[in-house]
Design a protein around this nucleic acid. Sequence first.
DNA 1: CGATCTTAGTTGTACCGACAACCAAACGTC
DNA 2: GACGTTTGGTTGTCGGTACAACTAAGATCG
Lengths: 173, 173
Amino acid sequence: MTTDTAWLSTEESAAWVRLIALAELLPGALDAQLLRDAGLTHFEYVALMSLADAPSRTMRMTELASRTNATLPRLSHVARRLEARGLIRRFPCPEDRRATNATITDAGLELLADAAPGHVETVRASVLDALTPAQLEQLYDIAGAVLARLDPEQRLTATSCQFSEGPAVARAG
Amino acid sequence: MTTDTAWLSTEESAAWVRLIALAELLPGALDAQLLRDAGLTHFEYVALMSLADAPSRTMRMTELASRTNATLPRLSHVARRLEARGLIRRFPCPEDRRATNATITDAGLELLADAAPGHVETVRASVLDALTPAQLEQLYDIAGAVLARLDPEQRLTATSCQFSEGPAVARAG
DNA sequence: CGATCTTAGTTGTACCGACAACCAAACGTC
DNA sequence: GACGTTTGGTTGTCGGTACAACTAAGATCG
């Protein structure tokens, strides 16, 4: 036994339970809609979106893995499947012959453009529409405060992960 | 093409990206600590905690699955492993001979009691300590509003999932 | 009560992600 | 410029979850 544990107060426990429930349900809801309507997991969607947003629609595997919170083996497997479906292409990086670059193909952009409306609709229906503008700002601050601890280097928040009339996808639309 | 999609505003997109990052990172952080220190996934921890909180430390498989957002097959597999480790016991329900009851054993309660302090510490360090009391209340409301859509029957929030000097675990401590 | 339907749970199969092992290329040191 | 180290990436194996198929038991209705 070290020092006595500081158990959670009623308020802390209540908020925590809800946060856990939210973190448990949200990924499933997003995966379900995207898989049903576009044959993509949310992870694949975010990965493709990151590529679509990148300069020349291209990114190093390592950087893409970092931005999507994936291990490199995981990304490698996912990339192989996406490449087999013709949604991305991989080729060795000229500057560093160890590295691999991944590029989203036109077919990939097209699939994204098809998938985006339904996804945005789901995001609105399941989350955003439930919040007031004030709550939206509070959520931004709260998540920011927590991410400062969980993701101090801001790897995940560097990506836009959203359309909002982004340049790369506007081209494909 | 149906109606034009209502893309996300800058504020919406920013808050959404952070929420997704949070939902992506939090489960991994919880799993990592619990697996390292107690050999339990967060899901197993919550399942055991639900049993510890239940009357007679016992619950039907179906209800436990509902409370933990698990499919019944998933819970069945997890229960088999937990039972093999001596942390729970399963036996047919007397009232309904289709049903199975699961009970947490003394060893299970002991493991929970051992695991709880480290888990609570992680919860504080990664989330709660980053928030002001006002933000804690905002989080409660925000998550509540979202869960009203994702979990309208409040299956997940019915459980306490926390110690906070709960009765069952106090017995085992 | 017997046929059918629904509910509770387990088991088998397929897929996905974690981890470890491995290979190749760049870097640092002398 | 050879050698050990580090970095970038892929492949193989294992464990866990989803989905489907199946068994058993209660419920419904004639």
